[in-house]
C-alpha cells in the first residue's frame, strides 16, 4: 500500500514537465528569448539615438524640437507602468487583425527599455571628463569623430553595469506578456501547472525559475567579460595585463605596417 513518497513524486514531476510538456516549455522559452533579445536590441538602438540627441542638443539650437520629443518620450515611458503600455500597444495602437502579437511585445518592451537605456547612457556620456572632448576638438577633430572615438568608448565602459541591470530587469519584465496571452516561460509554467494538465504549480514554476536564472547568469557572465575587457585601460593594472595590452597594440601596429607594405607592392605591380 506504499505510494510514491513526496520526494519521488517531485522528481517524477520534473521528468514529466520535461517529457510530457516539453512543447509548452519550448514555446515559452522561445517566446521569452525572442521578446527579450528583440526588445534589448531595439532598446539599445533607441537609447543610443535618444542619448546622442539629448547631448548634442546642449550646443545646437537646431535640435530643440527633437530634444523636446525625446524628453516627452522618456518622461511618458518612465512615468507609466509597463503593463499599461503593453495593453495600449496590444489593444489600441496595434489592434490590427492578424498582427503578430510577439512583435507587439517586442516593440513595447523595446520602446520601454529605450527610455531607461537613454538616461543611463546620457549620464555615462556626461560623466566623461569634458577635457577629453576639448582635447579632441583642439586637434581639429570634428565633434562627431571625437564623440565616436573618444567619448563614447569611455561612456560605454561607465554604463555597462547600469545597462546590464536594465537588460536583466527587461528579461524578467517580459513575464507580463502573459497578460496579452502570449505563451512565454511564465505563462507556460502556469499552463503546465493548471488543472487540465499536471494540477500542481510547484514543479513547473520551479523549472521556469531555473530557466530565468540560467538566462540571467549567462547574460551576467558576458557582461562581466565585456566590462573586464573595457576596463583594461584603467589604473593599477598588473604587469601581466600591461604585457597583454602591449602585445595587442603591437599587433595593431604590425597590421598597419603590413597593410602599407601590401599597398606598396600592389602599386609596384601595377606600375
Amino acid at each position: 500500500m506504499e505510494g510514491p513518497s513526496a520526494f519521488e513524486k517531485f522528481f517524477s514531476d520534473i521528468g514529466r514537465v520535461f517529457s510530457e510538456y516539453n512543447d509548452f516549455l519550448l514555446t515559452g522559452l522561445q517566446n521569452t528569448l525572442i521578446i527579450s533579445v528583440g526588445a534589448a536590441v531595439l532598446g539599445l538602438v533607441l537609447g543610443v539615438i535618444v542619448a546622442i540627441i539629448k547631448i548634442a542638443a546642449v550646443n545646437n539650437k537646431k535640435l530643440r524640437i527633437p530634444e523636446a520629443i525625446c524628453n516627452i518620450y522618456v518622461g511618458v515611458i518612465r512615468g507609466t507602468p509597463v503593463a499599461l503600455q503593453l495593453f495600449i500597444m496590444a489593444f489600441v495602437i496595434l489592434a490590427i487583425r492578424n498582427f503578430p502579437i510577439v512583435i507587439t511585445a517586442i516593440l513595447t518592451f523595446g520602446i520601454n527599455s529605450g527610455a531607461y537605456v537613454a538616461e543611463n547612457l546620457r549620464a555615462g556620456i556626461q560623466s566623461v571628463d569634458p577635457g577629453q572632448t576639448e582635447a579632441g576638438r583642439s586637434l581639429g577633430l570634428s565633434g562627431s569623430t571625437t564623440m565616436a572615438n573618444v567619448v563614447l568608448p569611455q561612456a560605454v565602459k561607465n554604463v555597462i553595469p547600469a545597462i546590464g541591470n536594465e537588460l536583466i530587469a527587461l528579461i524578467k519584465e517580459t513575464s507580463i506578456v502573459s497578460m496579452i496571452s502570449i505563451i512565454d516561460l511564465t505563462n507556460a509554467a502556469k499552463l503546465i501547472g493548471s488543472g487540465n494538465n499536471m494540477a500542481t504549480y510547484l514543479v513547473p514554476m520551479l523549472v521556469a525559475a531555473l530557466f530565468y536564472l540560467a538566462i540571467v547568469y549567462i547574460l551576467t557572465f558576458f557582461l562581466h567579460m565585456i566590462e573586464k575587457k573595457l576596463r583594461e585601460s584603467e589604473q593599477h593594472i598588473s604587469d601581466k595585463k600591461i604585457a597583454k595590452v602591449k602585445a595587442k597594440t603591437e599587433r595593431k601596429l604590425a597590421r598597419i605596417n603590413s597593410a602599407y607594405e601590401k599597398a606598396v607592392s600592389k602599386r609596384k605591380e601595377a606600375a
Binding site: 577635457g131 582635447a135 576638438r137 583642439s138 581639429g140 573618444v150 585601460s233
Partner: peptide, 25 residues
C-alpha cells in the same frame, strides 16, 4: 574652424590624454 584648429596645437593643464587609447594611438 576644424581646419584652423589643426594648425593650432593646444596643451592643457590636465593633459587630457585620451584614456581609452594607448599612447601611440
Amino acid at each position: 574652424i576644424n581646419l584652423h584648429r589643426r594648425s593650432m596645437g593646444m596643451v592643457f593643464q590636465h593633459f587630457n590624454l585620451f584614456n581609452n587609447l594607448t599612447v601611440v594611438e
